[in-house]
Design a protein around this nucleic acid. Structure first.
Lengths: 350, 350
DNA sequence: AAGTTATCTGCAATCGTTTTTAGCAATTTG
DNA sequence: CAAATTGCTAAAAACGATTGCAGATAACTT
């Protein structure tokens, strides 16, 4: 039952192990036919571990995400998987945004993978130091660790996207605009808050610190943040929510508080979803191509694995688009386009 | 730069490699202090591949799912990951429901993993034959391959869940009840259709073949199936949709056709979602704990890896629950319960 | 046919561990 | 005090592949 080894094949054919090995590597070999047959007869499969030990390669790439059940990260992973094709297999790790888990995971990864696609929790994560030790290339996706500039990254254009969202609310006549932000220690949390503030400034709307609440990218966090905003003496009339999960939480809070969207509170989210269209009211969001982000990250990583760091690190960005539906009070224009929604492109990748 | 080996450590301390190895395995050793120091100084990390080659174990478990971007499968994976803890790492493979890809993946997995958690596309998949060759335990989740009874499985109670859904519609006065089913070649597609038919039979409602349409578990498939139902001379007044994605598609079709839910068409889905509550109207669904399913699968698998097949294969089932919201015309009772929704338990796991 | 070159082959070393074996010293036992 | 037991240790043999080297065929030259 236990698998045959290369030596079994060699013995059966009457050649040396090296000849079989060379046959397997595609070299021209005299008894290729009988080797082929013996391999089939013995159901021989090369032992990957032995091969890896010799070659020093593993044929594996790790992907560290906060939580695979977040559809956004699932899309990234899927994109990465597709881009990896048959060359590399994926190892998946969810960290729950816990830097300690990230550190432990990276430590365990040593010797198991040839590269890492990494969505870190915090820009100043302690795991930084660990990276010095480990000898595989890393590509950051969606978030970066600021001190690790030597690695590549594939981000969304958070600033532009957030400005676009805020501007959209302003154009609908809102001035009391809140922002439920992600952790300021995270790249998108920080970037989107910056974009929000920049848009306010540009329209000469004074910043109200009560309206900028920092949360944690979770449903519950979004719910609580929204409840907080509703409890304010001077309620905002519109809110830009910093990610998909917090948007769900915010909407739950609004529904529970019987606050009408968009009349009493306009809402715009970050990151689209298959169901955004069917929510009541259909949700206007900033969207970007997570699948593409994952695919870009993987191809960048594979390049590094192949060619090393002879070229300077890349900083890729994918577009953020505004998908107008009805949660900001926009009329139902989107029916007129063939894609069932109106998309305004914002920025180009670079 | 390249990692130090156990021999470097041994040399530095002045002992043999085996002594260092024994120290690492927790045996009592005379120079343990200096070995500890040398390991730290040299930043020695054991080479996993060498270790795996020697032990024949990989410390890895593969998870094969149709598509990780389907939140349901993402939950399964997450549950499996949590249950694996620090003992095993996960290798992820999406197959797009393509049996050929499944087969190729399983073939590649040989020697890379100690076990497999597997959501196959079809019950009669050709990949069956492959399994004979490979020497790791397998646990099926959500779907099985019928000829492989020797492996464990963790399924949902599809029949009961589907009956519950259908009965719910019947109790709301519907008799013209359609079912958009998944592929009949798949376990849940078949099981849920059976449950649907059983419930009709029990209520002495005649089966209408136009009302049982087989689709493919995708958004587009659900959309097209619903469009087909709407085009019928005698439209059904209610529909039970066989999975989450097809439900989204069906709702899109209804929205696009301006058919009111639940007045003109009652809808009940299979599998809950964080957003189901916020959809218009809030979606009544059959729900089961996907996270638990994944966790059970993993713990079953780890048991097999540890103890082998001395015990007969297990067939676990998780409960299906009815979550009543408003898409079937139920009044808004759910507010009265503390969990924000009314849950009727259906069956117990066995 | 003999010399030269091009192909292919087996041997042995190597990758970095773990584990078995046997040996040595120190300690306990009769 | 000799004998038996204990507690570590080093040396060597795996684990299953790949690869440099040198020798053996085979295939061309002239």
């Amino acid at each position: 039952m236990s698998n045959a080894t290369i030596s079994d094949v060699a013995k059966k054919v009457g050649v040396s192990e090296s000849t079989v090995s060379r046959y397997l590597s595609g070299f021209k070999v005299r008894n290729s036919e009988s080797i082929k047959k013996a391999i089939k007869d013995l159901n021989y499969r090369p032992n990957i571990m032995a091969r890896n030990l010799k070659s020093g390669k593993t044929g594996m790439v790790a992907v560290i995400v906060p939580d695979i059940s977040n559809p956004f990260f699932a899309s990234i992973v899927r994109g990465a998987e597709v881009a990896a094709g048959d060359d590399y297999m994926l190892q998946l790790i969810s960290t729950n945004d816990d830097p300690d888990k990230e550190e432990a995971a990276i430590r365990r990864l040593n010797g198991r993978v040839d590269g890492l696609i990494y969505v870190p929790a915090k820009e100043d994560s302690q795991a930084i130091t660990e990276f010095e030790d480990y000898a595989f290339p890393v590509v950051f996706v969606d978030r970066v660790i600021s001190n690790l500039r030597r690695f590549d990254s594939v981000l969304a254009d958070n600033q532009t996207g957030a400005s676009l969202a805020t501007k959209h609310l302003i154009e609908h006549g809102h001035a009391a605009i809140a922002h439920i932000a992600g952790p300021s220690a995270s790249t998108p949390g920080k970037g989107r808050a910056e974009g929000y503030l920049a848009a306010l400034k540009k329209s000469k709307i004074e910043r109200n610190n009560d309206y900028l609440v920092e949360s944690d990218f979770t449903v519950l966090g979004g719910y609580q943040a929204m409840m907080g905003l509703l409890a304010l003496k001077k309620r905002p009339s519109a809110v830009f929510v910093g990610n998909n999960l917090m948007t769900i939480g915010a909407l739950k809070a609004l529904k529970e508080s019987k606050v009408n969207v968009p009349d009493e509170m306009a809402v715009i989210g970050f990151d689209d979803h298959e169901l955004s269209d069917l929510v009541n009211p259909p949700l206007t969001v900033i969207s970007r191509d997570a699948h593409l982000q994952g695919a870009l990250a993987m191809s960048t990583l594979l390049e590094r694995i192949r060619d090393g760091y002879q070229f300077p690190p890349k900083q890729l960005k994918v577009d953020s688009n505004l998908v107008i539906r009805q949660s900001c009070g926009s009329t139902c224009l989107y029916r007129k386009t063939d894609s069932d929604k109106k998309i305004l492109s914002s920025s180009t990748s670079s």
